[in-house]
Design a protein around this nucleic acid. Structure first.
Lengths: 150, 150
DNA sequence: GATGAAAAGCTTTAAGC
DNA sequence: GCTTAAAGCTTTTCATC
């Protein structure tokens, strides 16, 4: 599905999404016009979903992160759908995962201070009709430097 | 620290890191030259760490994701350092979090198939000298659409 | 698919306000 | 911090291979 040139393009854009097309072309050893066509094809095929800035959360006033495991009351489609649509829109939510196991969802959140975290859990999670239980784990550190997966 | 214009710039680049400077300037209501200077300052101050492509994992051959909670044998500095430096370099690791609570680390991984997941856990985690236990939760779905945090 | 060349557009810098 | 203007790149298209 992807040849080695496509993978090299994806790796380069994972590392720096603003690499200029001319530089990208040189990096992977093809002509700029070809490179542009491949990048466009990768986007159109949905291999690349988008390009995002990586922000320093403490620098933008969100120095506290947590992982919150959420267990639903019942594992009905209705409760899942309800939580699924609510969760990503709660304030401070970075990511939402629907997971297998004892818990049903895992939320990665960033907040300004402990009070904001308390309010998030108490006002938005435990009061949600579908939620049975929420277990909060503070994040000491998000460890950087994961190797590109492809 | 950040004024409303800076935050608007960051929001725009969170959503699309490749927004052209001229478009960004218009979006936030300042002149292109000012906008360029602000974006550069945001990078130099470390508010923006970088720009990354968002990749469709199944499309690049990694259709299976898991969250793996790792508990260390002892909570010594040495064991923490050892695991901390190893974990981000294990194959398929997307993110590593050092967390508070019963478990010590949370790994988000993407793999090609169940056998790769088994091999990751058995060959790289449970055989690591610092690791006491690893609990694997499959990710059914990474739910999109989280609201920008700033 | 890939290329090279031309046109269009964008970035970047500097000077003056 | 804004505007303007100019130079230098980049992107994009298109005819061609």
């Amino acid at each position: 599905m992807l040849d080695e040139t496509d993978r090299a393009i994806v790796r380069a854009l994972l590392e720096n999404a603003r690499t200029a097309n001319s530089a990208l072309a040189e990096l992977v050893g093809i002509a700029p016009s070809t490179c542009l066509a491949r990048v466009r094809a990768l986007r159109e095929r949905g291999v690349i979903h988008g390009y995002h800035a990586e922000v320093d959360l403490p620098a933008v006033g969100l120095p506290l992160q947590a992982m919150i495991s959420v267990r639903l009351r019942a594992h009905t489609r209705e409760q899942n759908e309800g939580f699924r649509t609510t969760a990503p829109n709660l304030p401070g939510v970075l990511e939402v995962f629907h997971i297998a196991g004892a818990d049903d969802y895992l939320l990665h959140v960033a907040v300004a201070d402990p009070e904001a975290l308390r309010s998030f859990v108490v006002d938005h999670l435990t009061t949600h009709p579908a939620v049975a239980q929420a277990r909060t784990n503070l994040v000491f550190e998000r460890i950087p430097g994961a190797t590109p997966v492809i």
